[in-house]
């Protein structure tokens, strides 16, 4: 059949022919591999985002309630009405408060896990942070409804300790107070904090683990106290991790509508506005315009974070 010996085996069918083709043209394989996922994400996700943008430039006819598919900025102008603008300010304030709280409460845990946990404890801490991150969101929110209810465990404990007067005076505070913890901003803040805390801890821990020991030794060799070392060496090096974590806590709080609906006062957040406007109110254009607000805020936030080097810590 063949007169000379060949170094290359004869092709045994379609599989071989295709393999040879991919070998000669690696980019073809790349394109074939990437096409399905990129098409999916491009069409389903980016396509939807474009649809959202288009909707936000439409408006609604105030009398008939029918969507008018013509380009207008009127819907965005409606966001600036005091009642709507308040919603945006309230949401951003809450997101900032949650981010701050998560950084303060999460830091010791991240620091301990990165610096002192060894062997078996390392795994305990890892799971201890990862399991709450992944466990059911609704179940976590529900747990807090049980905790914060007037007749729930906090009320019971406070009464047992004789601190009812303290709790009542906290709840009597203007703005953040309410009739009970489950209908006050304090309650909303606590639940946001609880649900998003692991998102803050993990990047902080990652950046703390990268702090070289030699720097800490150098710092103490140069006579710095523990606190000075922390303030001038550890904290600045952990900053990218904190910013990376804050991206999550900030963004997630901006877009949530379930938590303020279940725990909190009747004053609305962006997420609730979006949900109600697209549902019962049927004002999809205004809902879309509201949904663009977190996107714009996050783009600004990410631009600042990028300058601070937060993406290396992700």
């Amino acid at each position: 059949m063949m007169t000379t010996n060949r170094a290359i085996l004869p092709e045994r069918g379609l599989g071989d022919r295709l393999s040879a083709l991919f070998w000669r043209k690696p980019n073809l394989l790349l394109v074939l591999l990437l096409a399905p996922p990129v098409l999916w994400l491009g069409v389903v996700y980016l396509g939807s985002l474009v649809a959202l943008l288009i909707q936000s430039f439409y408006s609604i006819d105030e009398f008939s309630g029918v969507i008018v598919p013509e380009f207008t900025l009127a819907t965005y102008a409606e966001l600036l009405r005091p009642s709507n603008f308040d919603i945006i300010v309230r949401t951003v304030t809450m997101a900032a408060a949650v981010t701050l709280g998560a950084a303060v409460i999460g830091f010791p845990l991240a620091y301990f896990a990165a610096r002192y946990a060894r062997g078996k404890w390392k795994a305990v801490f890892y799971l201890g942070i990862m399991l709450p991150l992944w466990s059911s969101y609704l179940v976590k929110v529900y747990a807090w409804k049980l905790i914060l209810a007037k007749e729930g465990i906090i009320g019971w404990a406070v009464e047992g300790l004789g601190g009812s007067a303290v709790l009542n005076s906290v709840l009597a505070l203007p703005v953040i107070g309410g009739t009970s913890l489950s209908t006050s901003y304090i309650g909303t803040w606590l639940v946001f904090l609880y649900v998003w805390l692991p998102y803050m801890i993990l990047p902080m821990q990652a950046s703390l683990e990268r702090v070289p020991v030699s720097m800490l030794e150098a710092s103490s060799d140069l006579g710095a106290t523990r606190w000075q070392t922390f303030r001038t060496v550890v904290f600045p090096l952990a900053m990218p991790g904190i910013i990376a974590g804050s991206i999550f806590t900030f963004s997630l709080t901006l877009g949530d509508y379930i938590i303020p609906q279940i725990i909190g006062s009747s004053r609305r957040f962006i997420g609730q506005a979006v949900y109600q406007l697209q549902g019962t109110a049927g004002n999809v254009p205004l809902a879309a315009a509201f949904a663009v607000v977190p996107i714009v805020i996050m783009v600004v936030y990410l631009t600042i974070a990028r300058r601070k080097g937060a993406f290396d810590a992700l």
């Binding site: 939807s48 962006i270 979006v274 999809v284 977190p294």
Partner: peptide
């Protein structure tokens, strides 16, 4: 991006 954006985007596209 927050889930509400993904949700609202898909909702707009379906609409």
């Amino acid at each position: 991006l927050p889930g509400i954006i993904t949700g609202m985007s898909l909702r707009s596209a379906y609409a």
